[in-house]
């Protein structure tokens, strides 16, 4: 009788333990990217007002994002994705499966790392790969060393008339010297629920920042090597226009 009671107790304990939810060992991080203009979602082709009160539209905004990683509170670095191209004409996100736990930072590079830039070429990838001939979507210089890291271009009206948006601007930045890695502190937890983190690109800040202001009337085009000073100024503003935040 004593044995029977012990067996029943053991069975009850096993049942009890079996009903308890196990600790998750991994979960999903949805890393997204959003382009904003003056606090609202930036829409390709829409007309906004630039830093000199002129109308401006953005016809193309693409950037390579690479070496995406998340950093746990204990310092462990977890790789998310090697490289992708963000086309801000479409929504962009990537669902990564990460070990469960507390995280405090997201790191990523803007551009194509040197190891896969100048001495490589699109033929080494499938055509539809983001570094391949079709997949790079015009983000490769065949006459120069490597990929275009960021394209930000569109039109403005220097006379202020938004009905005559005919003055083009184009910031095409690339080459190894312009590859840059960023680390943003953002606290989040990976558990059974999906966690969304967004990289925010505040487009109005690409022309106006704390220390500099680009006037599209005079400084409106760079393909990097043909105007390195402007590429440097643009990237300094671009850098300050990025932040990362928890979306949910």
């Amino acid at each position: 009788m004593k044995h029977v009671m012990m067996l029943a107790l053991a069975a009850a304990m096993i049942t009890f333990i079996g009903c308890e939810d196990p600790e998750p060992i991994e979960g999903t991080l949805r890393l997204g990217a959003k382009a904003m203009y003056d606090g609202n979602s930036m829409i390709i082709g829409d007309i906004y007002t630039d830093n000199n009160d002129r109308p401006i539209n953005i016809e193309q905004f693409r950037t390579y994002i690479s070496s995406m990683k998340a950093v746990k509170d204990d310092g462990t670095i977890v790789h998310i994705k090697a490289i992708d191209q963000i086309n801000f004409a479409e929504s962009w996100f990537f669902d990564a499966t990460l070990p469960a736990g507390d995280y405090y930072a997201i790191t990523f590079g803007i551009g194509v790392p040197e190891s896969i830039n100048a001495d490589q070429d699109p033929a080494q990838y499938p055509n539809d790969h983001v570094l391949g001939f079709t997949g790079n979507n015009g983000m490769f210089w065949s006459w120069n060393s490597g990929y275009i890291f960021t394209k930000f271009e569109g039109k403005t009206a220097l006379d202020g008339d938004e009905n005559s948006m005919t003055d083009p601007y184009a910031f095409h930045v690339g080459t190894d010297n312009f590859y840059e890695e960023f680390t943003f502190n953002v606290d989040f937890e990976i558990d059974e629920a999906r966690t969304d983190v967004d990289i925010i690109f505040n487009c109005e800040q690409f022309l106006e920042g704390t220390d500099d202001s680009i006037d599209l009337a005079t400084d409106n085009i760079t393909h990097t090597a043909d105007n390195i000073p402007l590429a440097e100024r643009f990237m300094a503003l671009f850098r300050d226009g990025i932040n990362v935040e928890l979306a949910n």
Partner: peptide, 9 residues
């Protein structure tokens, strides 16, 4: 351009 293969492009 750094390589003959890339030059072809």
């Amino acid at each position: 351009v750094q390589t003959l293969e890339r030059q072809v492009i």
